[in-house]
Write a protein that binds this DNA or RNA. Structure first.
Length: 537
DNA sequence: GGGTTTATAT
């Protein structure tokens, strides 16, 4: 009996395949790869495809390694093509998915795309907004008799909507015999993504079926457009809510700077016994950073410790940012050093932390470590570095960094980078050099840059240059108050009171007013807000 | 042999 049973069951997969599927790092996959090459197992498409899938889809997520395995496989099957096309469709380079689809059609004559291939390649078309290619593939779908497949149709709907062809999508949706809730969601999600909330709401009201995702789309549409009352109304109307619903609302409040409400919502969320996920925690931490709510920030950190949540990527960045914005640079360093995984943003957050605390040298040191560890700095890195130099008065270093930015790292300086340099030169009173730099900028007549230079003129009492720049600023934007305010301040500092009165009169005539500055501080776990010239609220 | 559509984010 047992012999018959054994002969009927499929043979168990070789143990190496189970090993491949459990691998948690590239080096383990490399070991499996080496073993397969040594034993000849790699020649079997099934084994090779399992290895490739592990590289392309698991948490390891190494698409380029998956592609290498694909290239080394003598006769890849459709499954392998599909896995790779899917991987590229959701990567930063979806055009490779299209290229692979063409390769499948042209190079491998004995292979045919199947229904899975179409869903993946259409997804790539949607990401790239290539409706022309999408239509051609739609033609292939019809020709191959796959128009009945609801997965393919839903991806087609999404593709047409994403490319702005809402009428085509609508036409298709109305004629789909087997449409389901995902079909409606596929179109709704695009209205929401593009910020067409009114159209989204009309469409949403018309939907004959709705699920939790539909409600979440509508909710996040309002929340992302800053329409918090509408978002709240949708949220309150929902009979079932999940962590995505809570996150969407919380993120909406956080993006509008209503941080106290963020923390209140989080309390409600806990009372509703919905378990926060990493997104929730990241948003909470950024809210804490925004109002300097150290106690709540520490609470989130402790919550992570208690629940064994790994401090990596997003969360490590959010924690470093929170601690440094709340004034605890030592805690920020501690979190940074012990983070299990860092990405470019985590390094940037640490550099920014040192920068705002005035530790220019440390910021530069972290940058060297970042490069030594093989991370590629981005434009944000250089804003942080240059502003670190500016705050710490590191003139020589800033020139070197600014020079290397393009020549070594290939990053073109943006307005922010020039802004940091102008600020630094201004602090040193090198107004002539600063002016020359501004004149050399490829971006012309940027208000904020001239304003920065103007304030340097004020600090160093350079009236002529200040007058020249003020004139320029008022010419560029007569409603801009910085020009008026700074110029009147300069006149005041020189005791030229009649000029001051004159400028203030002009400001009143044009109804330009100066907005008061403000600040927030946490005392005993409560956040207080101040406006310039006011007492404690 | 196995897998698919819509998805909040520093």
């Amino acid at each position: 009996m047992s012999a018959i049973f054994t002969s009927l069951s499929p043979p168990p997969p070789p143990p190496i395949i189970s090993f491949t599927e459990m691998a948690t790092s590239i080096s383990e996959l490399h070991q499996a790869h080496a073993y397969m090459l040594k034993t000849g197992l790699f020649q079997q498409p099934f084994a090779a495809s399992r290895l490739m899938t592990a590289a392309a889809t698991s948490s390891i997520d190494s698409l380029s390694y998956a592609h290498t395995i694909f290239t080394q496989t003598p006769q890849p099957n459709t499954y392998m093509y599909n896995t790779l096309i899917r991987g590229y469709a959701t990567s930063p380079t979806p055009n490779v998915a299209l290229f692979l689809f063409l390769k499948l059609l042209c190079d491998d004559q004995d292979l045919l795309p199947d229904k899975y291939t179409y869903t993946f390649v259409l997804k790539a078309c949607a990401c790239l907004c290539r409706v022309k290619h999408g239509k051609q593939i739609h033609g292939c779908v019809i020709k191959n008799g796959l128009s009945w497949d609801v997965y393919i149709c839903n991806t087609l709907l999404h593709m047409y909507a994403k490319c702005g062809c809402f009428e085509v999508a609508r036409h298709m949706l109305d004629r789909m015999p087997n449409r389901d809730v995902v079909s409606w969601n596929a179109v709704l999600s695009v209205y929401v993504e593009m910020g067409f909330v009114d159209l989204a709401f009309d469409f949403f009201s018309e939907m004959p079926v709705k699920n939790l995702e539909s409600w979440n789309f509508m909710l996040s549409g309002y929340a992302n457009s800053g329409l918090l009352d509408e978002a709240r109304r949708v949220f309150d109307e929902m009979s079932v809510k999940d962590v995505v619903s809570w996150n969407a609302l919380i993120t909406g409040y956080a993006n509008s700077g209503r941080y106290n409400e963020v923390l209140e919502l989080f309390d409600d969320m806990q009372r509703a016994r919905v378990k926060p996920n990493n997104h929730t925690l990241v948003t909470l931490l950024s809210a804490c950073a925004g109002i300097g709510a150290l106690e709540q920030g520490k609470w989130v950190h402790a919550y992570m410790d208690r629940n064994g949540i790994e401090v990596n990527g997003f969360l490590a960045t959010a924690l470093v940012d929170m601690y440094s914005k709340c004034g605890c640079i030592e805690k920020a360093v501690e979190v940074f050093d012990s983070a299990s995984r860092k990405d470019v943003s985590t390094w940037n957050a640490m550099i920014t932390g040192f920068s705002v605390h005035g530790f220019g040298e440390q910021a530069l040191k972290v940058f060297s470590e970042m490069v030594e560890n093989g991370f590629k700095p981005n434009d944000v890195t250089f804003v942080s570095l240059l502003s670190a130099c500016s705050r710490a008065g590191l003139l020589f270093e800033s020139h070197e960094i600014f020079g290397n930015m393009f020549s070594i790292y290939g990053i073109k300086p943006k307005i922010e980078h020039y802004g940091c340099l102008v600020d630094l030169l201004g602090r040193f009173g090198l107004l002539k050099e600063a002016e020359e730099l501004v004149e050399k900028m490829p971006q012309k007549d940027v208000l904020i840059i001239w304003e920065s230079l103007l304030s340097a003129c004020r600090n160093h009492g350079n009236v002529e240059l200040a007058e020249h720049i003020s004139g320029k600023l008022l010419e560029l934007n007569p409603q801009d108050n910085a020009g008026y305010v700074q110029l009147s301040n300069i006149h005041a500092s020189k005791g030229r009171w009649s000029d001051v009165v004159d400028i203030r009169r002009k400001m009143r005539e044009k109804l330009v007013s100066k907005k008061p500055g403000g600040s927030v501080i946490e005392v005993d776990g409560v956040v207080h807000e101040f406006l310039a010239g006011e007492g404690m609220i």
